[in-house]
Amino acid sequence: MRKRPMNYLITLAIAAVSWFGTAILLGNYLGDSVALENATTDTFIQVYRAILIAVAVLGLVNCCYWYFYGAKETTGGNVPAARRVWRLSMAAQVAIAATAVIALVLAFSDEQFTSVEYLLVFGAASAHTYIFFWICTLFMSPRPVEYVPLGRG
């Protein structure tokens, strides 16, 4: 599971399943539940899914970069540097999730969402960014950086 291409393929599969859950299932639920005054439900779902595609791609790219970086021969000899890269990636993913919510707010600035709806959107973005990154790297980091992710020893 820690070796390529296995870790890349499993990560891609998780991203796809996760996107289906958040963009399709949760998207349909939000489309039905949000009270929109100006925009149509279809527009909301389209924008929501577009944002989730963007964050999912960024989450996936970050994971793939971590696998690539972690598998490099030079990485195993400098674990502190690898830890810095992981932490920076994690922080970037949190920022991306927050940016996703802000982007949705800006796209629908003349609409009113409940705090639960904000939380759901943030949760969906999180599932594609830092949570996705953390879970994938926790179980599928290459051998040299196996113990770098938070919670791994």
Binding site: G76, G77, V79, P80, R83, R143, P144, V145, E146, Y147, G153
Partner: peptide
């Protein structure tokens, strides 16, 4: 925490 994987295995 800075030690390599082979050590922490």
């Amino acid at each position: 925490r800075d030690r390599p994987a082979w050590y922490r295995d």
